[in-house]
Nucleic acid binder design. Structure first.
Length: 362
DNA sequence: GTTATTTGACCCAC
DNA sequence: GTGGGTCAAATAAC
């Protein structure tokens, strides 16, 4: 069984990358960076991603070493390279995170890899079918365990990122279809973030949005945020945070400081694309009735420390109080608070992730 | 003409 | 075998 270099195992992949990048070309050749044959598929995939990132970084290094004004940089700009390198880190961390809790060696075929545009290409292992346009075998990258966050909102709100809808499915025994979105910068910046939006059956006013993956893209800033309502409806004073994600931890996302907020450092609620689920426009009179602005802005993830319930518990709708803390990785601050939150419907705490809209006063 | 959405088909995890 | 996630051609919107 082949193992990653000790620095990789003992600290973090980024340290390994930095170590590799700090080596001279000759030194790199003396290290065995080829992927062993008998590596578990998950780690092999991570290895491939890291190796791809290393090559991109070298490419960037060469580009930066050139004199200013030298335009013979090839098809990719430095900005593109940085985006792709970050993409490889994100992908590798995601894979390694999965492997840490569950050695998922079969979810990603070992003979597949990401191409430069973010799509998955396939090596020439398949033989039963040729490269007919309809042959999409192996072209999917479905991750069994990736970091997800779920939020419930009574209105369609913007999270500050540009999304593009790529699918809609009728879900078995579900009254409302599920809509699939990917980051608009998936191909130009390699951002792998996706989200699913589905109206809840318990309360059709509510929408469940599940985010998967982290944004590595640089989205263009949007105008001042506000809850999306009908143009004829006066917009309530909801231009500030009206809901916050509460992560109760899971196997994939322990509250250990590696729990990233899905909206980056600024979880402001912004306007959602009006094309998204247009049926809301006909059912908006009741939306956001109980949402009020929070008296603070959280710059980091919210972690409930003592919600009074735990995994496996089921609580009914109502207003609950809990103690929560927020950590700002950027500012190094930590804040604890007591708060009340509105639970709009029965919630099964065995769910990995969920969130609530805060109610009334705190 | 370009970009976004729709939707049926395909593929994979369970 | 089935359900759900993704792809990509067709279509719509701008």
């Amino acid at each position: 069984m082949w193992n990653f270099p000790s620095i990789f195992q003992s600290s973090c992949p980024l340290a390994y990358i930095n170590k590799m990048l700090s080596l001279s070309s000759q030194e790199r050749h003396t290290m065995d960076t080829s992927c062993p044959e008998n590596l578990p598929a998950g780690r092999k995939k991570a290895f491939d991603e890291l190796e791809r990132g290393r090559k991109l970084a070298i490419q960037l290094q060469i580009m930066l070493s050139k004199p200013a004004g030298d335009d013979a940089d090839g098809p990719l700009s430095a900005k593109d390279l940085v985006a792709k390198i970050l993409g490889t880190f994100t992908e590798s961390l995601s894979i390694l995170n999965c492997s840490a809790s569950d050695e998922v060696s079969s979810q990603v075929p070992a003979n597949t890899h990401l191409s430069c545009d973010g799509r998955k290409s396939e090596d020439s292992g398949e033989s039963s079918k040729t490269s007919a346009p309809t042959d999409r075998r192996g072209c999917y990258k479905r991750r069994k365990t990736s970091q997800t966050w779920t939020r419930f909102t009574t209105s369609l709100i913007d999270d500050g990122h540009a999304w593009r809808k790529y699918g809609q499915k009728v879900i078995l025994n579900a009254q409302y279809p599920r809509n699939y979105y990917r980051c608009s910068h998936k191909f130009d910046q390699g951002c792998q973030a996706t989200k699913q939006v589905q109206r809840t059956e318990e309360d059709p006013r509510m929408y469940r949005t599940t985010y998967k993956g982290h944004h590595i893209c640089k989205s263009q800033p949007k105008p001042a945020p506000h809850i999306m309502l009908d143009d004829s409806t006066p917009t309530p004073t909801l231009s500030r945070d009206s809901s916050i994600l509460l992560g109760f931890g899971s196997n994939n996302k322990p509250n250990d400081g590696h729990f990233f907020h899905p909206f980056g450092s600024n979880p402001l609620i912004k306007q959602e694309s009006k094309e998204e689920l247009p049926s809301l426009k006909h059912n908006q009179s009741s939306s956001s009735d109980y949402l009020v602005p929070l008296p603070f802005k959280s710059s980091g993830p919210m972690a409930v420390l003592s919600p009074g319930s735990d995994h496996g518990d089921v609580i009914s709708s109502g207003v609950y109080s809990c103690t929560a803390s927020t950590h700002s990785l950027e500012m190094g601050m930590e804040m604890d608070m007591d708060m009340h939150m509105m639970v709009p419907s029965v919630v099964d705490f065995s769910d990995d992730d969920f969130n609530f809209n805060f109610a009334d006063q705190y």
